[in-house]
């Protein structure tokens, strides 16, 4: 008898990735189709530049978060923020 495999546990990452990719592709498509519009914001406002800005923001945030946590992070034990009395 073949033992049934354990049920798969899925997170939400795939769904979120689909959601974000749809937004990015649709936004980029419309943005490029409106390329003739005059825009304020210099290079950051050119068609497609907002997608590049988004990629840059993500990379910058990840890098800065690493740096902040490395430089300023102090380990604590779990439950330090827990409530101590329940008056709820």
């Amino acid at each position: 008898m073949i033992k049934a495999p354990p049920p798969k546990h899925r997170g939400i990452a795939g769904l979120l990735l689909l959601f974000c990719a749809t937004g990015a592709v649709a936004g980029l498509g419309f943005d490029l189709s409106l390329a003739a519009d005059a825009r304020f914001g210099g290079a950051a406002a050119q068609p497609g530049a907002r997608a590049v800005m988004g990629l840059g923001v993500a990379a910058l945030l990840v890098a800065v978060a690493h740096a902040f946590r490395w430089m300023l992070g102090r380990r604590v034990s779990h439950g330090e923020g827990a409530r101590v009395r329940d008056n709820a």
Binding site: L17, A26, R50, A65
Partner: peptide
């Protein structure tokens, strides 16, 4: 469109970096 494009791009980039364990 540019707004959705930026949020979508940042989301895709962050989720991929998280999947690749590049985030903290």
């Amino acid at each position: 469109a540019p707004y959705a494009e930026m949020l979508g791009a940042v989301g895709v980039a962050y989720i991929l970096m998280r999947a690749l364990r590049l985030t903290h």
